[in-house]
């Protein structure tokens, strides 16, 4: 019996102590968690491979770091647990740098920063204020900074409907189940409004950038103890900005500057 207890204790201790076995190794390959449901940053192509700006930028960074990178697909709300698991070593999923997330994981310097905006049917004429949003159904992707912003500001007046992916929210916007959606302006523009199904929709209200909710841009999510990997990403991001390869890749996807300073 004692042996059983001791074994259980040892197994538990191992299971609970998920950190540390990866410390102090030289990085030859880096597994990167990507979402695959957030065009044009990442989406799953017809052949099942993840494609998009974020994948191309990952490859660019890995070239600079001289490591081999393997993409791993993961739903957004499971990203941080999967990084800790560790199912992969870095998150590149348009994840904004926020204080709450910083308690769990470390971030590289920001690699892009675009404002958040509301989206609604053309001519819906909705005013973005507690009075204007009263009783409205607002869609948002679960566990994003936009979700936190809505919950903190409009939970008492509006009905917040949360989705597993941005794409599910767009489906319900088109179906008319939602009055508004909230999301990253660039993702709404390129992933929805510029596509056929989103042609009757437009972005409304101001650019939302308050760093209390929207953080300091998007960074690579990393385990806290992987300091060496963070330094590698920081350096690589700075290099791509300096040698023009960031701007060249950006032009292939967007007609605006997404770095945002």
């Amino acid at each position: 019996m004692k042996l059983v207890v001791a074994t259980c204790a040892a197994v538990l201790a191992l299971a609970l102590n998920t950190v540390s076995p990866l410390q102090a190794k030289e990085w030859k390959t880096v597994r990167v968690g990507l979402e695959g449901d957030y065009p044009p940053f990442s989406s799953v192509g017809p052949d099942g491979k993840i494609v998009g700006w974020e994948v191309d930028y990952m490859n660019l960074l890995c070239e600079h770091m001289k490591v081999k990178c393997t993409p791993v697909q993961q739903d957004f709300d499971g990203m941080i647990p999967a990084l800790q698991a560790p199912k992969f070593d870095a998150i590149m999923a348009s994840m904004s740098i926020t204080d709450v997330r910083k308690k769990q994981i470390a971030f590289s310097v920001s690699y892009y920063n675009t404002p958040t905006r509301f989206v609604a049917k053309k001519g819906a004429n909705i005013e973005i204020s507690p009075a204007g949003l009263k009783g409205k159904k607002i869609g948002v992707q679960r566990s994003t900074i936009q979700d936190n912003y809505l919950t903190d500001n409009y939970a008492s007046v509006a009905e917040i409907v949360r989705y597993g992916s941005q794409d599910d929210m767009f489906l319900d916007l088109v179906a008319g189940r939602l009055d508004l959606g909230l999301g990253d302006s660039l993702q709404i523009s390129d992933g929805f409004i510029k596509t056929d199904r989103g042609k009757d929709f437009e972005m409304i209200g101001p650019n939302l950038t308050d760093s209390k909710w929207f953080g300091d841009g998007v960074g690579v999510g990393l385990r806290k103890q992987d300091d060496d990997l963070k330094k590698m990403f920081d350096t690589a991001i700075a290099e791509t900005l300096k040698d023009g390869s960031y701007q060249a890749l950006e032009k292939k996807y967007f007609d605006i500057d997404i770095y945002g300073g």
Partner: peptide, 22 residues
């Protein structure tokens, strides 16, 4: 909870995603 309803599982998913405490 997969079609946006906040039942017991839906509540758990919200708590999990907000505090990262699965």
């Amino acid at each position: 909870s997969l079609v946006t309803l906040i039942d017991i599982t839906g509540a758990a998913r919200i708590v999990n995603s907000r505090y990262y405490t699965p």
